[in-house]
């Protein structure tokens, strides 16, 4: 039911790798390394600044994919990947967008499950990709029935 959405992209949205947001995120995952928030440690590092944890892109706004109506309930996060060209640096601006990469269905323990793979990207303002990520969302048969009503 999502097959006709494959290839659709969101608009690009500018996001800041904001100092306070990085610190709060590092605290929330219990990764209290000073490279994420101590200005002095950042300045003396090879990055000349603080960096963000690898899963920080979870916080970004990736824009809206037109008419991709995902339910707000009953979704299962099955898999997640991140690929980096380099770590994200505090203070930089990133253009983010998402794309519907693929959709397939297969039989599982709970009936016919749908698997929706969304790929997300973060670029610098010159258009160079800094990171990409994929999220595999599992949609149960029960939820899909509600959607088609």
């Amino acid at each position: 039911m999502f097959s006709n959405q494959v290839g659709k992209r969101s608009n690009k949205v500018k996001n800041d790798v904001e100092r306070g947001a990085v610190k709060k995120f590092a605290e929330a995952i219990g990764d209290l390394h000073p490279i994420y928030f101590d200005v002095e440690v950042g300045r003396n590092s090879r990055f000349k600044n603080n960096i963000a944890p690898p899963t920080f892109p979870r916080t970004f706004d990736y824009g809206v994919i037109d008419r991709l109506n995902l339910p707000t309930k009953g979704l299962i996060h099955g898999e997640q990947t991140f690929h980096y060209e380099r770590p994200l640096v505090v203070g930089e601006e990133i253009l983010c967008y998402s794309e519907v990469k693929k959709y397939f269905e297969k039989k599982g323990n709970f009936g016919e499950m749908g698997f929706l793979v969304l790929e997300s990207f973060g670029e610098d303002l010159a258009g160079n990709t800094i990171f990409s990520s994929t999220s595999t969302i599992v949609i149960s048969e029960a939820v899909r029935k509600v959607l088609t009503k």
């Binding site: 990947t81 991140f82 980096y84 770590p87």
Partner: peptide, 18 residues
């Protein structure tokens, strides 16, 4: 991922899949 944070001067997490 914090298992790797102490080594930020040696390298970085290029791929992370779960």
């Amino acid at each position: 991922a914090k298992l790797f944070t102490p080594y930020f001067e040696e390298g970085f997490v290029k791929d992370y899949s779960i």
